[in-house]
Design a protein around this nucleic acid. Structure first.
Length: 448
RNA sequence: CGGGGCGUAGCGCAGCCUGGUAGCGCAUCUGUUUUGGGAACAGAGGGUCGCAAGUUCGAAUCUUGCCGCCCCGACCA
């Protein structure tokens, strides 16, 4: 992509309303633009990141055996009356009426609708288990939206729903999502710690919040340092197999959010040197809730004994748009973002230090074409801006690799390859630079 | 919803108390000179001062109402 054709409205000055780094950087690097309290337009640069995060989430859901569909953003009040939640949900739900005065709502979540879809097509226990998900915009009329996309009112969420014949089977579905979540966040370079969460009236131990540690997180959290070093399930994990050992490994260490925290247990179970008391960002939440919806909405299957039974359900959410904020919180410095390769809006920034200079333009053009044809996503800055301005802009948007081509270097047939994360710079010939960049990119993308 | 604050050019702000021709920096445009880490000079364009009503000869400024946004608390991906 040529920068001159792209739409990248960067800001030199920090917008006054942005309190945390990720919000500031998203506004400054031209990734989002606010359209109202907690409502954002996704500008091209931010949209590319959002799509990459979404795709990783999708791939890991598919790998775990979940099946994608797409439900609408607008739902009928009728459906929510069946579950009893239309009146119970409160002001957080955005209620609207259509031209015939029918009561509608902008979906804050989809348990009712997925249950309706499920019961319409499944009759037998032989059709179970089922894991269905979609990635769709939600609206929750939050009391206080803040921190940019971290707590927006409109947000992109992946929500999966599991349907099983009994609680034992439901636990297997739960475990699949547990393992899938570990992989999902790890692929974005994040360490998300599963922490036990409140299960409400259902009880049991089947609810975990996945928390990324960050000073600007909204939740206070407590956990064992050893959790940070546990291995992520590998790409060849068999999701049909028994995943309980993986889950047990993670849940054997203390980890709880503020609401669930037991300080006495914390201090006795966790060695003093391993006690982490920090803040975190909730990027996912998995939950088993049994018959909460299958009961009122009559989602039943016929069992092997010929008798109907209510399906056991769970739901599993990942905040896709919030994840973008979490990634920036985890990876940035004073100059700007430092994207992991897997979610970077572009892999490489190509800086032409003297646009209009035949030799420089030609060298950049060759590099650009070669990298693009090798599948490397390049943002090519061939604008007339001055070098300092170009460098600052590149650092702000934080692409993992920068290639700098200018007349001075070319005198020696040399260009500079710079890695954003480490700050390492190498001076290489044009050919060597192309190869070096390709290898850095493929190495960065190799984790999957 | 309770408490606090703000709305003046794309962004950041001053002006308001004490009413009288709307300003500054950055950005933008034109020209010249520059070009390896946010250039210099000269010139130019851009504002129903959030909206409405009121007071007044006269309102960005005073009064009232409304709208919007931000921050602190209880909810959540």
């Amino acid at each position: 992509m040529r920068l001159s054709q792209f739409y990248l409205p960067v800001l030199k000055e920090t917008p006054a309303e942005a309190q945390i780094a990720s919000h500031r950087l998203m506004l400054r690097a031209g990734m989002v633009r606010q359209q109202g309290a907690g409502i954002y337009a996704w500008l091209p640069l931010g949209f590319r990141v959002l799509k990459k995060i979404e795709q990783i989430v999708r791939e890991e859901q598919n790998r775990a055996g979940a099946v994608e569909l797409l439900m609408p953003t607008i739902q009928q009040a009728e459906l929510w009356r069946e579950s009893g939640r239309y009146d119970a949900y409160g002001k957080e739900m955005l209620r609207i009426t259509d031209r015939s005065d029918r009561e509608m709502l902008f979906g804050p979540t989809n348990e009712e609708m997925i249950t309706e879809i499920f019961r319409a097509g499944v009759r037998s226990y032989k059709d179970l288990p089922k894991l269905l998900y979609h990635i769709q915009w939600k609206f929750r009329d939050e009391i206080r939206p803040r921190f940019g996309v971290m707590r927006g009112r409109e947000f992109l969420m992946k929500d999966t729903y599991s349907f099983d014949i009994d609680e034992e089977a439901a636990r297997k579905s739960y475990n699949r999502m547990f393992a899938a979540y570990l992989r999902t966040f790890a692929r974005m370079g994040l360490t998300a710690i599963p922490m036990r969460a409140d299960t409400g009236p259902i009880g049991g131990d089947l609810s975990h919040e996945f928390i990324v540690l960050a000073d600007t997180g909204e939740s206070a959290v407590f956990c064992d340092r050893q959790l940070l070093d546990l291995p992520t399930p590998s790409a060849d994990t068999d999701f049909e197999s028994d995943l309980q050992p993986v889950i047990d490994q993670f849940t054997s260490f203390y980890a709880a959010t503020d609401e669930m925290h037991d300080s006495a247990e914390f201090t006795t179970r966790v060695e003093e040197g391993n006690q982490i008391s920090a803040r975190g960002i909730e990027v996912g939440h998995i939950f088993f809730f049994g018959e909460k919806y299958s009961e009122p909405m009559k989602a039943v299957v016929t069992g092997p004994d010929g008798k109907d039974r209510k399906v056991q359900m769970g739901s599993y959410g990942i905040g896709v748009s919030r994840l973008m904020g979490a990634v920036i919180e985890a990876f940035h410095d004073d100059d700007g973002c430092k994207w992991p390769m897997s979610v970077a809006p572009f892999h490489v920034g190509l800086v032409n230090l003297k646009s209009g200079d035949e030799k420089t333009d030609d060298a950049c053009g060759r590099l650009y074409r070669e990298l693009e044809s090798a599948g490397v996503e390049v943002l090519y800055d061939e604008t007339a801006a001055r070098p300092g301005e170009k460098f600052a802009r590149m650092d702000l948007i934080g692409l993992p690799v920068q290639v700098v081509v200018g007349p001075r270097g070319l005198g020696d047939g040399v260009v500079e390859v710079k890695v954003r994360e480490s700050g390492e710079r190498e001076n290489l010939s044009l050919e060597a630079a192309a190869e070096r960049v390709k290898s850095i990119v493929s190495e960065g993308l190799s984790y999957s």
